[in-house]
Design a protein around this nucleic acid. Structure first.
Length: 585
RNA sequence: GUCCCCGUAGCUCAGCUGGAUAGAGCACCAGAUUCCUAAUCUGGGGGUCACAGGUUCAAAUCCUGUCGGGGACGCCA
């Protein structure tokens, strides 16, 4: 049950009634009409701009039209008042009984009261992490990983059919470097002294077990020419790295549905990259031509040459993009085109790519490619995640540039736990830089939003436990609470809490439409704040406490209220992938 | 030189895709607190939404330009 869509309907009915009465043209565009909570509480519970939108086509003054609409809306029994304000807003104040009914619905249906079907079962592909399989994930990958996962949860929550996908870059030169690095460890495992790791190879110790494993399996069989062992070592090294990566992700509670191998695009004699280019060529988007030299610092080996180009400028890009390198192999962009065509052909009309902000320059060409490939039948949204800066007690954590010496995702998760990491990564808009402090995120204080929200949930359960002890005669089962008489909830803070709960469906939908899971985190923080505030008022005003032994009926109503609150908190936290604990300890 | 993101209270950031008098948390100031259910509470000051134009009933939000910060600019992915 969504309060706002309820009133979208009511406004629509009022407008239709006026049209039937001849006060309005029959064909009005009502799509621009908004029904939303006013920023200022003195403006009531719901505000609509309907009269201001319709005034011009109706040939009426906004306020006059507003009076007519307000009169219609005011006829409903649960509307306490519908008043015209400002330039033509209609401010609607609802009767407490309306809010009691909303709360009853939340209690009866649980989180399902916020179910939405804006996704309509449409298939959406969320691609995230997609880190090169050359080593463990570092902290920089962490944000995109959590963001993508929460976004996938969110879209699933509002009725999309979601695939979580990881694109394995297992075809470029860097996996050959990985193979050579592993081969060195293999020789080391066979007893050879390898000394320092040469410049340009991956030095990390995490490759040692891979080398040892190769030594066990292959003995001395891989000691010949590189061409003889490269493929074998590369394959096993990539497998080992992906095992490492999926373990790291699992520690964060992340599991992908699909791991798509870049190499598979050209495996088994096929060449789907060539196919994709041919597909574009048939539509006239490919040509042979020259590009102006890149601005900024000119690469040393720049040469002006004729090459195969994608006409991305026809789709909003700044320059056309090359698809083949000078050695004849495909550019990364070319395989990405084939990859996105594959996604489209697998039935995804909606695609979302989650990238680091340093890939920002790549956005236009990728969107251009998807537009060209799908003829605008599919859409691609690209979410860029900004940097995470690490702090410890306010001091920046130094990360040496030296290769191999980075803070891994695993180190962060092992130290502070998955929940704080996930929540903090989502407590900021994705395109804003984020400061992560190892000390602050585990503090048990109201300054720490992770704790603040989790504690609200735990506190509800604490109250329920105390109630069971203090009033053993009460039936605190879901059924009893759902049928409690809620009419005793009259304090503004209590009604305010219910109003906040009623905003949840709208918060879900707007977050899903905007592809912005952080809005859920902020909503939960506000909800927790309402609850803690109400709890604290019980200090000075004992009659407001949730447990009131002298008034069992009122106690039931209040316990029902906080039970509903806990359900919404738990539902929201599950979207963020954070556990809703029942005790803090 | 071109493109993308950002610029909101002293600090860190929200602002529901165009709504009414722009919000929250820190920090600061002033009170309350041998009360209790679990980790104090209440109030207050503080703003030219970087700047200048434009679009309209209405702009922090959309468009153009300027300034400032970050990032990216065949053959790294």
């Amino acid at each position: 049950m969504n309060v706002f869509s309820d009133f979208v309907n009511r406004v629509g009915e009022a407008v239709a009634a006026l049209a039937a009465a001849g006060d309005l043209p029959t064909s009005c565009d009502i799509s621009r009409i908004s029904v939303e909570p006013p920023r200022d509480a003195s403006h009531g519970d719901i505000a609509t701009n309907a009269a201001m939108i319709l005034a011009k086509p109706a040939g009426l003054k906004p306020r006059d039209l507003a009076e007519k609409i307000a009169a219609k809306l005011g006829e409903a029994g649960d509307v306490a008042s519908a008043e015209v304000a400002g330039p033509g807003f209609i401010n609607i104040t609802l009767d407490a009984s309306y809010w009691h009914r909303v709360l009853a619905t939340v209690l009866k249906d649980g989180p399902a009261f916020a179910n939405s079907d804006i996704g309509k079962g449409a298939a959406v592909n969320v691609e995230y992490v997609s880190a090169n399989p050359t080593g463990p994930l570092h902290v920089g990958h962490c944000r995109g990983a959590v963001f993508g996962d929460a976004l996938a949860n969110l879209l699933q929550r509002v009725g999309y059919h979601v695939a979580r996908e990881y694109y394995i870059n297992d075809a470029g030169a860097q996996v050959d470097v990985l193979a050579r690095s592993v081969h060195l460890r293999y020789r080391e495992a066979l007893g050879e002294k390898i000394g320092d790791i040469p410049e340009g190879l991956y030095p990390g110790d995490y490759l040692k077990p891979v080398g040892e494993s190769l030594a066990w399996i292959h003995g001395h069989a891989l000691l010949g020419e590189e061409s003889a062992w490269l493929e074998t070592v590369r394959t096993e090294a990539i497998d080992a790295m992906m095992d490492l990566i999926t373990e790291d992700l699992a520690a964060l509670g992340i599991r992908h549905d699909v791991f798509f191998s870049e190499r598979s695009l050209t495996a088994e004699g096929g060449d789907r990259i060539a196919d994709a280019i041919a597909f574009l060529a048939e539509r006239g988007h490919i040509y042979e031509g020259r590009l102006p030299p890149p601005k900024g610092q000119l690469p040393e080996d720049w040469e002006d040459r004729e090459q195969t180009l994608f006409r991305s400028t026809a789709f909003g890009d700044d320059v056309d993009r090359p698809l083949k390198k000078s050695d004849g192999s495909y550019t990364y962009f070319a395989s990405d085109i084939a990859y996105h065509l594959d996604k489209f052909r697998r039935g995804f009309g909606h695609m979302i790519d989650v990238w680091g902000a340093d890939h920002g320059g790549y956005v236009k060409r990728m969107k251009a490619a998807v537009a060209a490939l799908t003829g605008d039948e599919a859409d691609l949204d690209i979410k860029l995640c900004q940097m995470v800066r690490l702090f410890r007690g306010g001091e920046p954590v130094k990360m040496s540039k030296r290769a191999g010496d980075f803070v891994t995702l695993r180190e962060v998760v092992d130290e502070v736990g998955a929940d704080p990491v996930r929540f903090m990564m989502l407590f900021r808009k994705n395109d804003a830089p984020l400061d992560f402090d190892f000390v602050k995120v585990t503090e048990q204080s109201r300054d720490n939003p992770v704790f603040y929200v989790q504690y609200a949930h735990a506190r509800v359960h604490s109250v329920l436990r105390n109630a069971a002890e203090a009033m053993p005669d009460l039936d605190l089962g879901d059924g009893a609470l759902a049928s409690a008489d809620l009419s005793g909830l009259t304090d503004v803070a209590e009604i305010g809490l219910i109003k906040r709960l009623a905003e949840y469906p709208r918060a879900l939908e707007s977050a899903a439409i905007a592809h912005e899971p952080h809005r859920i985190a902020f909503y939960l923080h506000e909800l927790a704040s309402d609850f803690h505030g109400l709890w604290n008022r019980g200090k000075d005003s004992p009659q407001l406490r949730f447990i009131n032994a002298a008034h069992p009926a009122l106690t039931m109503a209040r316990l029902g209220m906080i039970k509903a609150l806990a359900a919404v908190l738990a539902d929201g936290l599950s979207i963020l992938g954070v556990e809703a604990v029942e005790e803090m300890r």
